[in-house]
Design a protein around this nucleic acid. Structure first.
Lengths: 143, 143
DNA sequence: ATAAAAGTTAAAGTATACTTGAGGTCAAGC
DNA sequence: GCTTGACCTCAAGTATACTTTAACTTTTAT
């Protein structure tokens, strides 16, 4: 596959694919007779790993280091540790996003009430509020 | 509370708090007789909202716009829509992170096997792989 | 033959979110 | 009286991840 095809299929700008290549993300990428990049299954699979590692909180430089590790057969332990650390990080991120979600749900409820009752003041005066939201309300104080 | 206390209590650099102030995140922030910022309950609550909106994918500029909206009593509907949109966004983000997590779990398992079996080749030759990982393996191809 | 389409490199530019630095004010302690 | 510490402003600097630009080659269509 040529760079434009990959770009279209994965929704990644060609300039970004070149940038990733320059960062060492495609160690085995081949070129055709004109020097044009030829993306094979290995590179397409790498795109998934790259996306995964980015989402897991690694910088471009750190992802490059991972692909460096992959060149060396006796780094299996380091690579295991890397993914284990990333996994823990992502689990924490998910928990933080769940908390963010609870706050957003509270705010959504809050403004829905404000619209129905006519003002924020009216919502703030409510004595009975769904237990689901009570904790969040406390956290935010006057907000 | 003075800026340094807030900084210590919330682990946010004083420079960042000033930057947030300059972005309009504390519309009602008071100053003492020397012109020093005095953070009250409203501002401390705002910090939670700011963190929430940042996590939900808004830029600093967009969070500033939200605080602008809050100055106007007839923007309750817009604010409701904002939080509703952010909620949907965060739900999608959580789903993406769950997928990221599944890939990381596969990679962790893969390298654990490689360590136990002595090489990546040995793992790639396995015919029986836990069903949990089969889908991910397919997705990644040769990676 | 010539121009458009698709690829290349290297270097400079951009956007976001801070962070740092210079230069200054003010209250408290020695 | 003078230094220290905590605050201030404003402008410039930094880091990350791209993106854009310029200058060039090659293949394909008119």
């Amino acid at each position: 596959m040529k760079i434009t095809q990959v770009s279209k299929k994965y929704g990644i700008p060609a300039s970004t694919l070149r940038y990733y290549d320059s960062a060492g993300f495609f160690p085995d990428l081949k070129r055709d007779e004109n020097g044009n990049r030829e993306f094979g299954p290995a590179e397409l699979g790498s795109l998934k790993v790259i996306e995964c590692l980015k989402k897991s909180g690694l910088t471009i430089g750190e992802i490059g280091q991972f692909f460096e590790l992959c060149k060396n057969k006796d780094t299996l332990g380091e690579r295991y540790e890397l993914f284990n650390t990333r996994l823990k990080h992502v689990e924490e991120e998910i928990e933080k996003l769940e908390e963010t979600k609870r706050i957003l749900e509270y705010k959504k409820w809050y403004y829905k009430q404000a619209l129905e009752l006519g003002s924020e003041e009216a919502v703030n005066k409510l004595t009975q509020i769904p237990s689901k939201y009570a904790q969040v309300k406390k956290l935010l104080g006057s907000n």
